[in-house]
Design a protein around this nucleic acid. Sequence first.
RNA 1: GCGAUCGUAGCUCAGUUGGUUAGAGCGCCGGCUUGUGGUGCCGGAGGUCGGGGGUUCGAGACCCCUCGAUCGCCCCA
Length: 455
Amino acid sequence: MSKNTPKAIRGTQDIFGADAEDFAFVVETFERVRRLFRFRRIEMPVFEKTEVFARSLGETTDVVSKEMYSFEDRGGDSLTLRPEFTAGIARAFLTNGWQQHAPLKVATHGPLFRYERPQKGRYRQFHQIDAEIIGAAEPQADVELLCMADQLLKELGIKGVTLHLNTLGDGSSREAWRAALVDYFSAVKGDLSEDSQERLEKNPLRILDSKDRRDKPFLADAPKIDDFLSDEARAFFKAVTDGLDAAGVKWKRAEALVRGLDYYRHTAFEFIPDEGSAAADALGSQSTILGGGRYDGLMESLGGPATPAVGWAAGIERLAMLVGEREEAGPAIAIVPEVDDDFGLATLLSAALRRQALNTEVFATGSARKRFGKAMKALPAVFIIINRQKVVNSEYFEILTKPNDRRGALHEVLRDEILDGIRTVFTERLKVSSMNMPYGSIIQLKPEEVLVLTK
RNA sequence: GCGAUCGUAGCUCAGUUGGUUAGAGCGCCGGCUUGUGGUGCCGGAGGUCGGGGGUUCGAGACCCCUCGAUCGCCCCA
């Protein structure tokens, strides 16, 4: 590589091969589960006016104050690449009059941008799947959303992950709790870590999940949200947990679980790998794989009517790390024309087979030997080798259908389907009633038959 | 924004206390062998050792800066 070749931007990734398969598997599974739960697909712009994020997330949050990709466009407007989905969806809900569809269940996925230090499972351009229920104040909405998340993780085959659940109460409960925490921690401020002293000013709730040893002694006796919950908030949370129990979704109360962004109320949750699990190992310090909560305050911060809503998002890269290696599957059929003159016949066959919904790849570069070697490496279920033979004065073609023994067991079931497909192509084209074609059979075609085939 | 480790061919890595034309395996290209084929053998292309500066008779190795990667902290999915 020349030193003049531009490099990828820090924190971005080019995804290829097995990793790309993992990524696609996550997205495809999400799409399937989304339909099962009847969430409607939406597409959102990748950038918005900066104020969309500044007003909804809160000016003082780290995301807004130092992690946004903001720029001025040619018209002088301040725009920002979306650092999350929720704010943009809320904006769309308000500007498009989607109130008429409320309660509205929507889902989307795509890239997000945050100027952060890259590390394991964390990038500057990263990707999330996202689900939201807007305009539903009932705890049933929280339950349905969590059921969907739970089923998604199960269908992805991710094990050793637990739903950690908490309530932040309604607006007034949350404020009372926050004030009590500030009082409590201010009294011992000098003994707290520097980080937590700062959090005391900016985000006191966050002190609760501090990892610093100096903070730990004070955490157990800190004020609990449960002592500040209004009767309504308590009833709401109970309805959520009862619903989860009814649906068979396992959960664990996590009193220290809070949300960083200002707009959250009531339910807050994260799916976190169990300690010592393979999932925890694979993720390093990026422990949360799916997180969200209720954000009843958001719409008002954007100047809209009070609108209750609840949602979650999950990092696709993180999920992809947990779904296990998905190899790129080999082709069903590999076609190897031994000489270039037979490339036309190979093209004809591949086109016909693809129309039969059989994925097919043609190997036609290098010597016959190399062609076969490359076809081997692609691990097809079946080979079709086109071999031109000369016998005395006439020329004929041999078409050899050969199952791949190397991965025989894997393709056992597939083979019959594949050979059926090949048989169909030949019998239809040659207008013969049937064609015997067991594994390893050789079909000899005269030039005039090839002519019929290629017509 | 802070800290630690690292950066040699397309990939995975060797490269001894600084000492001649920087190596291997895999991959790629070509040839031979074999001849219903996945093997073996031979050959070839491909590196200003991330970039810049410095120390030295001499730097891939040492020092500084910078860029990037990885893993933590903060924050967060």
